[in-house]
């Protein structure tokens, strides 16, 4: 319990205090009021620093989490079809998620190397585009991607964050395992009843599996959001620890780390931490609020 106090409650309160201070680790903290938050606001208004970090974090989280849910649920329901070798397939899909992030990052930086990486050699031999992946600040999900010029002359709008999203999808096996266990818990009688009513496999998925999975999907949505907003290691490694290229992988977690331990600006870093906390808090709360509309809670 002392541990709980020492490692959570005390830091929690003291970082709130420091976010109102100027503190460089050498001189004692000096209260500066709202200055750190004003700096955040002005960066936000001018589209630099924190504005970029917010955009990058949002882009990464809001694309990778829904995609990993769709992919995870689809894989889990394919696996729970009456097939042979289920456990082999499960292992193959799950294995990438136990690969240490440091090793996975090294591996993917090589696979996605723009000139001689495996992914681009395969794409090239199929006569497709060769994206620049980690070497480009582009974003696939952007208005620019609809312009034909974005795809002309072997250029693509695919960049570093899209590569990170791809990496996160490769490692979504632990979520898939949760879906698989949840599908296993659905009573067989429900499928029997649906079959007697003449429902085909897709219909059974849509009207039986999916609604009964919503509590687990909701759980994974919240956890996935928290995890992806906090993602740090892979971002640090692929961006050489500075958000390269062109700040396209400068996310909140990295911004916080850099301002605290490179610029020694603990006050500003604490303000960033609190901003991050507030964003996660509000979005978790919103998710819980809307969950009543779509999460199946069982027959009462």
């Amino acid at each position: 319990m002392v541990g709980l106090l020492a490692l959570f409650v005390y830091p929690f309160l003291v970082s709130l205090y420091w976010s109102f201070c100027e503190y460089d680790l050498i001189n004692p903290p000096r209260v500066v009021g709202l200055a750190n938050y004003q700096q955040l606001a002005s960066e936000f208004a001018s589209g630099t620093g924190i504005a970029k970090a917010l955009w990058n974090t949002g882009y990464y989280a809001l694309i990778s989490v829904p995609l990993s849910i769709v992919l995870g649920v689809s894989l889990a329901s394919l696996l729970s079809c009456d097939i042979r070798g289920q456990s082999i397939f499960r292992t193959l899909f799950y294995l990438p998620s136990v690969i240490p992030v440091v090793a996975a990052s090294i591996l993917w930086m090589w696979l996605l190397n723009p000139t001689d990486g495996l992914v681009n050699s395969i794409l090239g031999s199929l006569g497709l585009w060769k994206p620049q992946w980690f070497a480009s600040p582009n974003e696939l999900v952007s208005a620019n991607a609809f312009a034909s010029s974005a795809w002309a002359n072997n250029a693509t709008p695919i960049g570093s964050k899209d590569a990170l999203i791809l990496m996160s999808l490769w490692g979504m096996g632990n979520f898939m395992v949760i879906y698989l266990a949840a599908i296993g818990d659905i009573p067989k009688s429900l499928y029997e009843a649906a079959r007697i009513d003449g429902a085909g496999p897709l219909r059974r998925f849509w009207n039986v599996t999916l609604p009964l999975l919503t509590p687990v999907i909701f759980f994974n949505l919240v956890m996935g959001l928290i995890q992806s907003v906090q993602a740090f290691t892979q971002i640090y490694i692929v961006s050489e620890g500075r958000g390269a290229p062109a700040d396209s992988t400068l996310m909140l977690s990295l911004q916080l780390f850099l301002s605290a331990f490179q610029h020694l600006d603990m006050g500003y870093a604490s303000a960033v931490a609190w901003l991050l906390f507030a964003i996660l808090g509000v979005s978790t709360w919103l998710l819980f609020r809307t969950s009543r509309r779509w999460v199946y809670e069982g027959v009462r």
């Binding site: 929690f12 928290i226 931490a273």
Partner: peptide, 15 residues
């Protein structure tokens, strides 16, 4: 568990 590690990172480091 829901608290991001960033919030406690700096004070924990100093502690």
């Amino acid at each position: 568990m829901l608290l991001p590690w960033h919030v406690t990172m700096i004070p924990r480091f100093l502690l």
